[in-house]
């Protein structure tokens, strides 16, 4: 009766879903695990239609922190990665999960905080000094705490400054994405480390602003890494190759350069053409 009918309908739906998902894989689609900054800033929304138009390959973006994106690649759940933490990338390639690391583009990290700047880091030239000033004045600092590229760089700066704030009361380890961390930083009047593109695209700045920038430790290199077909046989390497080639080509690099937020360039292409 009713239940039998609904069971039949349910079966039909499952079959339909399975057919849909297989026919979708016949279509030319690749999965890209990327860092949140590239997706949330709108970069991919700008780039991918151009690539799709040129090659008829659809790119599905899963935005996660660099740590998680690498884990997705390691499990074989994505075909290609765009991430920003060179040491993790190198070990991803060295362990055989990543095929090759291609430099793609760069921007930089910045320290944002309340305009009142109680720790007085405005105009400071070195990130380690800015961090020391935040620590010595015990101003609140909001950390991603999620193994993202930004979080790993932050940890390196604390280490270089010979500080371990992880157990202090002014250090908030959030375990959150960039946007959530910025929302909390703004609401609680704390300092935070972020990438320039995420900050520029962030629409809840209130009284927060960039207080420190320009140190070379804050240089932020993005790379594109195809997942190795030898580890994961299902990876669509032919399509991924077209994608990386396009990103590294003049067309792709120019498109990256043309992307703007509020009239400002956010990512600076620096692909190594010799590879």
């Amino acid at each position: 009766m009713g239940t039998i009918l609904s069971t039949v309908i349910n079966r039909l739906i499952l079959i339909a879903a399975i057919i849909c998902s297989t026919s979708a894989s016949a279509e030319k689609v690749i999965k890209l695990a990327s860092t949140t900054s590239t997706e949330n800033s709108g970069l991919f929304k700008f780039l991918l239609p151009k690539f799709e138009k040129a090659t008829k390959i659809k790119v599905r973006v899963i935005a996660a922190g660099t740590g998680q994106a690498i884990r997705i690649g390691r499990n074989g759940d994505a075909d290609v990665l765009v991430v920003h933490h060179p040491p993790s990338e190198e070990s991803f390639v060295a362990e055989g999960f990543g095929l090759k690391r291609h430099k793609l583009m760069y921007n930089d990290l910045v320290i944002v905080g309340p305009k009142t700047d109680s720790a007085k880091i405005r105009g400071v030239e070195e990130a380690t000094i800015a961090f020391s000033k935040i620590a010595s004045s015990m101003q609140l600092f909001a950390s991603r705490g999620d193994d993202s590229g930004t979080h790993l760089v932050e940890k390196e700066i604390w280490k270089k400054a010979r500080l371990s704030p992880q157990r202090t009361r002014w250090y908030l380890s959030l375990g959150a994405g960039m946007g959530s961390t910025l929302n909390i930083a703004v609401a609680m009047d704390t300092y935070a480390l972020t990438d320039r593109a995420s900050w520029a695209a962030f629409r809840n700045k209130k009284n927060h602003t960039i207080l420190m920038e320009g140190d070379k430790t804050l240089f932020n290199q993005y790379s594109v890494i195809p997942v190795n077909k030898k580890k994961h046989g299902h990876v669509k390497y032919d399509l991924v190759k077209k994608f990386t080639n396009w990103l590294l080509s003049n067309d792709g690099q120019n498109a990256i350069r043309d992307f703007r937020i509020d009239g400002k360039q956010m990512f600076f292409p620096n692909a190594n053409r010799e590879q």
């Binding site: 949140t36 949330n40 929304k45 599905r60 973006v61 899963i62 935005a63 994405g177 960039m178 946007g179 959530s180 910025l182 929302n183 703004v186 695209a201 962030f202 629409r203 809840n204 700045k205």
Partner: peptide
């Protein structure tokens, strides 16, 4: 789902995403 645009993005994941972009 992975919150993939035009593919697995639903109401609740969009709300989470827009919150994280500061588009409150």
């Amino acid at each position: 789902g992975g919150n993939i645009e035009h593919f697995t993005r639903v109401m609740t994941t969009t709300i989470a995403l827009e919150t994280s972009r500061g588009n409150l």
